[in-house]
Deep mutational scan, measured.
Amino acid sequence: DAEFRHDSGYEVHHQKLVFFAEDVGSNKGAIIGLMVGGVVIA
């Protein structure tokens, strides 16, 4: 149960990062950079 909640939280966090990247611009380099930055921060 705890693992499921953790996975759901991660999924929401990931979707927010992707949405933010798409909102800023559909530049693949920027999106990839944001994703990598999110992984480093996390």
Score class of each variant (00 low, 15 high):
2 A>F: 09
3 E>P: 13
3 E>S: 12
3 E>R: 14
3 E>W: 12
3 E>G: 10
3 E>F: 14
3 E>C: 13
3 E>K: 14
4 F>L: 07
4 F>T: 11
4 F>C: 07
4 F>Y: 07
4 F>I: 11
4 F>A: 08
4 F>W: 06
5 R>Y: 05
5 R>E: 00
5 R>D: 04
5 R>V: 11
6 H>R: 09
7 D>M: 14
7 D>H: 14
7 D>Y: 14
7 D>K: 13
8 S>Y: 10
8 S>G: 12
8 S>C: 03
9 G>T: 10
9 G>S: 04
9 G>C: 09
10 Y>P: 12
10 Y>D: 10
10 Y>S: 11
11 E>R: 14
11 E>K: 11
11 E>C: 15
12 V>P: 10
12 V>T: 10
12 V>S: 12
13 H>D: 06
13 H>K: 09
13 H>R: 10
13 H>A: 08
13 H>N: 15
13 H>M: 12
14 H>G: 13
14 H>L: 09
14 H>P: 11
14 H>C: 10
15 Q>R: 05
15 Q>V: 15
15 Q>F: 06
15 Q>P: 15
15 Q>I: 15
16 K>I: 03
16 K>R: 09
16 K>M: 05
16 K>S: 13
17 L>P: 11
17 L>F: 14
17 L>E: 07
17 L>V: 15
18 V>F: 15
18 V>Y: 15
18 V>W: 09
18 V>M: 08
19 F>T: 09
19 F>L: 15
19 F>S: 05
19 F>V: 13
20 F>G: 13
21 A>P: 08
21 A>K: 06
21 A>H: 13
22 E>W: 00
22 E>K: 12
22 E>R: 14
22 E>G: 15
23 D>R: 14
23 D>N: 15
24 V>R: 12
24 V>I: 15
24 V>G: 15
24 V>D: 12
25 G>M: 10
25 G>V: 08
25 G>T: 06
26 S>W: 02
26 S>T: 10
26 S>P: 01
26 S>Q: 11
28 K>F: 01
28 K>P: 03
28 K>M: 03
29 G>I: 14
29 G>R: 06
29 G>H: 03
29 G>F: 07
30 A>G: 14
30 A>S: 00
30 A>F: 07
30 A>M: 07
30 A>P: 04
30 A>L: 12
30 A>R: 00
31 I>M: 06
31 I>D: 02
31 I>K: 04
32 I>G: 01
32 I>Y: 03
32 I>W: 02
33 G>L: 01
34 L>V: 15
35 M>R: 00
35 M>D: 01
35 M>K: 00
35 M>E: 00
35 M>T: 00
35 M>Q: 02
36 V>N: 05
36 V>Q: 04
36 V>L: 13
37 G>F: 01
37 G>I: 02
37 G>V: 03
38 G>F: 02
38 G>Y: 02
38 G>N: 09
38 G>W: 02
38 G>I: 02
38 G>K: 01
38 G>T: 08
38 G>V: 02
39 V>E: 00
39 V>M: 02
39 V>Q: 05
39 V>R: 02
40 V>A: 03
40 V>W: 02
40 V>K: 01
41 I>R: 02
41 I>A: 03
41 I>F: 12
41 I>H: 07
41 I>G: 02
41 I>D: 04
42 A>L: 15
42 A>C: 15
42 A>R: 01
